[in-house]
């Protein structure tokens, strides 16, 4: 069994009001050095596949079919043993 970790982020240029709110809160706490805050999500799961390439192919298909919305999101896939 391998582990898959999918990182989903909003595309550049897509407004991220939650990121903006977090940035405001960080600034309020004195972290003015943080800028351009973007919030994304991570989805992890165990995956049964013959090898890493096969696992990656299936995870890619999952992203295309459900996990990410290409209109507003980018994704990256990491497979580990």
């Amino acid at each position: 069994m391998m582990k898959a970790k999918i990182e989903i982020t909003l595309k550049n240029g897509v407004l991220d009001p939650q990121g903006k709110a977090i940035e405001g809160a960080l600034s309020g706490l004195g972290f003015q050095e943080a800028s351009n805050v973007r919030q994304g999500k991570v989805i992890e799961f165990e995956i049964d596949a013959v090898d890493e390439a096969a696992a990656r192919d299936r995870a890619e298909e999952m992203c295309r079919k459900l996990l990410a919305n290409p209109v507003m999101e980018n994704y990256s896939i990491a497979i580990s043993a």
Binding site: V14, L15, P17, Q18, A21, N69, V71, M72
Partner: peptide
């Protein structure tokens, strides 16, 4: 989400 209409609906700008 189904692709029957273009675009997407994001979180309201005012949150």
């Amino acid at each position: 989400e189904r692709g029957l209409l273009p675009g997407a609906l994001l979180r309201n700008a005012g949150l």
